[in-house]
């Protein structure tokens, strides 16, 4: 489905366009500096392995931000009222991850859509699940 510009174009069950966001080491390192979360497990593969991870991991709060950006691209001009993410497993830096979303409910009076969200790791594990409430323009 292409970008949504009007609430009236929404239907429950609509899928957001899936995306494969950039979680390369330079991108994750840039995030960590912006977030002031410069920890080795996020920016150094070997250090992360010493902590028991397969490789450096994407910060959970970055994965939430990636999902928010996907929502903004799907519905330009919308406002995210709430986004709730559960970190179920590690997403590895320099891997291929996939984000998905779907409309699960709508409030036609308030012009609010509810979404289910997920990020799947390269090996098929679900790393993040979540929900969001999105306000469309009046």
């Amino acid at each position: 489905m292409s970008a949504i510009t009007k609430f009236e174009d929404l239907e429950i069950g609509d899928d957001l366009p899936g995306e494969s966001p950039d979680v390369s080491m330079p991108r994750v390192t840039a995030f960590c500096h912006a977030a002031k979360h410069v920890f080795e497990r996020f920016i150094d593969h070997e250090a992360a392995q010493r902590e028991g991870f397969a490789a450096a991991i994407v910060p959970g709060i970055m994965s939430q931000g990636l999902l928010a950006s996907m929502i903004h691209r799907w519905a330009p001009g919308c406002e995210i009222l709430e986004i709730d993410t559960v970190f179920r497993g590690s997403l590895l830096v320099d891997s291929d991850i996939t984000m998905t979303g779907a409309v699960t409910d709508t409030d036609d009076d308030a012009l609010i859509a509810e979404l289910d969200l997920a990020i799947v790791a390269e090996d098929g594990r679900t790393g993040v699940i979540g929900t969001a409430r999105v306000q469309f323009e009046q």
């Binding site: 966001p21 994750v28 840039a30 995030f31 500096h33 912006a34 970055m62 990636l66 950006s69 903004h72």
Partner: peptide
């Protein structure tokens, strides 16, 4: 920091 955060998250909306 607000811009760096948003760009690292792949944001393309100029509001952010």
């Amino acid at each position: 920091n607000m811009v760096a955060w948003a760009k690292a998250c792949g944001e393309t909306d100029p509001r952010f």
